[in-house]
Each structure stands twice: as C-alpha cells, then as structure tokens.
Deep mutational scan, measured.
Amino acid sequence: TTLHFDLDGKKLQYTGVSEEIARLVEELKRRGVDLKEIVRILEELLK
C-alpha cells in the first residue's frame, strides 16, 4: 500500500506500507490526530 500526505506544502509518499499500518493511519485521521503527529508515528513504525 502507498500512503500520500500533503504536510505544510510538502508531498510525502510512503510505499510498501502494510494494510495494518494503512488502517491505523486512517483511524488516527478519523480521530482527528494532527497530521504531523501521524507522520511522526508512521516514520517510527517504518524504521
């Protein structure tokens, strides 16, 4: 799965993300978590 974000005018793309992580990101968005925080979490998970 590939995730795309537009953060402060920067286009971020994460490829090869598992379905689980993609679902987690969608859930965080639904809960109103700040996009910067979501990206920070995502980068930690993908290390």
Rank of each mutant, 00 (worst) to 15 (best):
D34M: 10
R30W: 09
L35G: 08
E27K: 07
V39P: 00
K10F: 07
A22Y: 10
E43Y: 02
L7I: 15
G16V: 03
I38S: 01
L12M: 07
V33S: 08
R31P: 02
R23C: 08
L3K: 00
T2Q: 05
T15V: 14
H4R: 04
G32C: 08
D8V: 02
V17I: 10
E43W: 02
I38H: 00
G16I: 03
T1W: 04
D8W: 01
L28W: 08
T2W: 02
V39R: 02
H4K: 04
R30V: 15
V39E: 00
Y14S: 00
E44P: 04
L12Y: 12
D8E: 10
R23G: 13
L3F: 02
V33K: 07
A22N: 06
R30N: 15
V17G: 01
T2N: 13
E20H: 08
V33F: 06
R40D: 11
L42H: 00
R40H: 13
V33M: 11
I21H: 11
Q13K: 11
S18G: 07
L45S: 11
K29L: 14
V17F: 01
D8C: 05
R31C: 11
I21C: 04
G9E: 04
L7W: 05
E43H: 05
L45D: 05
R40C: 06
E27A: 09
K11G: 06
E37C: 07
E27T: 09
S18E: 05
T2V: 08
L3E: 02
L7E: 04
L45R: 11
Q13S: 14
L7S: 02
L24S: 15
K47G: 13
T15R: 05
D8Y: 02
L24C: 08
K11I: 04
K36V: 12
E44R: 09
K36C: 06
I21L: 09
I41Q: 11
F5Q: 01
R31N: 15
L7M: 10
E44C: 07
H4L: 10
T15Q: 12
F5K: 01
I41D: 04
L46E: 03
L3Y: 01
R40P: 05
V17D: 01
V33P: 02
R31M: 13
D6S: 02
K10M: 14
L42A: 03
L12D: 01
L45T: 12
D8L: 02
D34I: 11
L35R: 04
F5P: 01
D34E: 14
E44A: 12
T15W: 05
L12N: 02
L28G: 04
Y14W: 06
K29I: 14
E26M: 10
I41T: 13
I38C: 05
L42Q: 00
E19N: 08
K36A: 12
I38W: 01
S18C: 03
K10R: 10
L12G: 02
L12I: 13
G16T: 03
K11T: 11
D34K: 09
K10E: 14
Y14H: 01
H4Y: 15
K29D: 11
H4G: 05
V17P: 01
E19G: 07
E27R: 06
V25G: 02
G32M: 14
V25F: 03
K29G: 11
K10T: 13
L28P: 00
V33R: 07
Y14D: 00
K36F: 11
L28C: 03
L35F: 05
K36H: 14
L42I: 06
I21F: 06
L46N: 03
D6W: 11
S18T: 12
G32S: 15
T1Y: 09
E19M: 11
K36M: 08
V33Q: 10
L35P: 12
L3V: 08
I41Y: 08
D6Q: 05
E27P: 02
E37Q: 12
D6A: 03
V17E: 01
K47P: 10
L42F: 04
K47E: 11
K11W: 07
E20G: 08
I41R: 12
L24P: 03
Y14L: 02
R31A: 14
K10A: 10
V33D: 09
L35T: 15
T2A: 06
L35Y: 05
R30Y: 11
I21N: 12
L42W: 00
G9P: 00
I21M: 09
R23W: 08
R40W: 10
I38Q: 07
E26T: 09
E27F: 07
Q13P: 01
E43K: 03
E19T: 09
F5V: 05
L7V: 14
R30T: 13
R31S: 12
E26L: 11
V39D: 00
V33L: 07
G32H: 13
D8G: 06
I38G: 00
G32I: 06
L46W: 04
K29Q: 12
L35I: 14
D34P: 15
K29A: 14
L46A: 03
Y14R: 00
L42K: 00
E19A: 11
V17K: 00
E26Y: 10
V39Q: 03
D34N: 12
E37D: 12
